[in-house]
Design a protein around this nucleic acid. Structure first.
Lengths: 227, 227, 227, 227
DNA sequence: TATGAATGAGCCTTCATTCAT
DNA sequence: TATGAATGAAGGCTCATTCAT
């Protein structure tokens, strides 16, 4: 093996490694940002900390993202937007009954979002959206709206097929959203919803809540029910 | 009437007025603090703003509260702690069925807390509790624990009287808490839970959700239900 | 002298001193800012330096001026704008011949601006106006326009009274402005206009230049003159 | 023609082309630097911008010039120094009257420097010379001194030939320099010398100013003249 | 008791320069 | 020779808290 070949190989290997790092940088920064934003909040996270956790210096962060706010928007895009193509397709193809479909909905959400640190993004927007209106706008546009559309479609399907009572779909969506939001908050919120001696079991809570929703959607008007 | 009595009376009146103002100060500061903390968050609220809204100067704030954090603890004490004596008594005396009792529970909470700015405190603790552990601890001790105790008592009563299915009370409590928490967040959170074209109607949501809970608690195990 | 009187006196003296300082602050800061801006340029002057030269801390500067740029606008207002009332009145009342008037004009400018550090402001705007368009706009509006109006009035008076040839007043104004600008630059510019062995004598230069202007304004078209 | 010759030729051509590119690099960088320094100032120009405008990367700039400051010195050398051989020869050979010579002087300066972007260098040194003393020194040595020498020679010639009054040559030089400096500044300075409704016409200004200078140099002491 | 001027640590962002490739 | 990713010191501005009055 000639020296030139060896050198060339070495050169390629090193360059490859360098380029791999370069391409990995934004991802590493986004991961670090998600971790820290979720842990401490957007305003309370220092950009230098994000850089440090990603293993780079302060300046490098701004090489990839022009500002802390844009970094957060990228975190949203990376982790939330763009999941909907998959989800929408999944439900368009769903064959079974709508109660099962709704339960599936909850479960997929739980696996992809609720049980992961991605759920922290929702907590963040709830917490700090008011102080960062542009971030709130972006989040609503990228995540909240598509999610509501999807859920409305599921509920309407159930009503159309006679599986659900003809409730006000717009309001019922919030009924589905509420337990999800609650779980996301609980996960990231210093346990200020519950008590240490009887901690929330998220999965059981979700099942129980889904039971309630399904019971409610299927129920005939109950006695003692609000008019 | 001796002159001294007259003087004394006058003196007392002036002193009383002065002291009333002096004693009112903390209350005015607490009101201002609640407003602003709820509006902008704890960390994002400047202590000078609080003082300004209370009509005093920056220095005066620190005369009554040694730090911003202590100010917030005082806000919690003032607005949340101490309501439980009333509430507990109310439910101890309740005569009707437990479904009605639970509905009453929701309504009282809505009137006293949920629909008022006090609900913002919960939002605050969910949002920023992690960054201020001492505040979170204080809030849990003063508010969360007593609330859970109360709700557990209600649910247990329903089970004992055969009105509710024998669910896991600890988890079911969260089922009641969740919609409350959701409403409190929604009220103070830049609309990041919903969409502008179908805004949440809090009262209807609460009724609907209560229906669901009652349907769920009353229901026999449904088909398609999680095991 | 009763103790209370003594205390009261002492109190008043101290308060007075404090208030005097408070009222003096903006002026001290403006002086410091003028010095440093003229010495190092606007961009190159750190706000902390300005504060330090005024004998206060960084934060104090921003107590009085919301930004470095506003500080500079205040420097302009303080030192340039508002002189025109005096100047305009002076020339409105002038009785003598216009050549003397123009010479007087140069001399007053020299005494009030040219020979003082205030002349550095013009140098600054010439140097950095492009990078700070809002400052340039403010300076033009507050100083350049009124100055041109005044000079045009003087030149027109000379023409009207038959003392000056009927030159294009708009262009001739620049002829008067040019030596002033040149002197201001020279004063604040590391001697990049001249040579160490034959330094510029500003007063003689100004007189000589004024002679030339007056000779030029009075002259009949000379041989070798541009068509 | 031997193969080696052919190869050698080809080699040389390729090498020549490569070297031409390589040798052109500094020139392209100097052009870019002149443009940007003149446009935005020395300190406010980012080295990356210079590289970008020259079509190379940031690193390459520092390959040819060890620092931004050295780059600027090279800009001065390239554009100002070395013109004097030509100019000096031109005036040594001049045959006509000195007034025409001085007018020629102004015109040549205007064509070669004043009306071109090179005039921006003078503006730069006036603006930022103080913050970069080494640059100011270099500029004075390379440009200001030779220019003064040349002008002094012209004026002295006029006096010697009886065409000009026996003024103080050292000071009179500044009289010639001033309008040039003024025009250079005005060209590069956000119009802070004039007003929008009566903008400066550089060529007319220069002619007018030259008329004044010549009138002044030729004039017998005028009435109202400074003693 | 009440004031508000003053402080200074802290944060986001920029940019000349370096160096591994 | 050429690249461009990475660095880190520096600068404008904020705000909880102090303290002289």
């Amino acid at each position: 093996m000639p020296a030139s070949k060896f050198l060339s190989d070495k050169f390629c290997a090193v360059r490859a490694k360098r380029e791999r790092r370069k391409e990995a940088r934004p991802g590493e920064l986004l991961d670090a940002a998600l971790d820290l934003f979720v842990e401490k909040g957007f305003a309370a996270t220092k950009s230098e900390e994000v850089a440090a956790r990603a293993g780079v210096s302060k300046g490098t962060l701004f090489l990839y993202f022009p500002s802390k706010e844009e970094l957060f928007k990228a975190v949203i895009s990376e982790n939330l937007a763009g999941r909907f193509d998959d989800w929408n397709a999944r439900f368009a193809a769903f064959q079974g009954g709508t109660p099962e479909m709704l339960r599936e909905c909850m479960n997929i959400w739980w696996d992809h979002i609720g049980s992961t640190k991605v759920s922290g993004i929702t907590k963040l927007m709830l917490s700090e959206g008011r102080n960062f209106p542009e971030l709130a706008r972006f989040y609503r546009e990228q995540f909240v709206s598509p999610a509501h559309v999807l859920l409305r479609r599921v509920l309407q399907r159930g009503i159309d097929r006679g599986e659900f009572a003809p409730v006000d779909v717009d309001q019922a969506v919030y009924t589905v959203v509420a337990p999800m939001v609650f779980l996301m908050l609980n996960k990231h919120s210093a346990d200020v919803c519950g008590t240490a001696d009887a901690p929330l079991d998220p999965k059981r809570f979700l099942d129980l809540q889904t039971d309630f929703i399904l019971a409610g959607l299927a129920a005939k008007p109950a006695q003692g029910r609000a008019s």
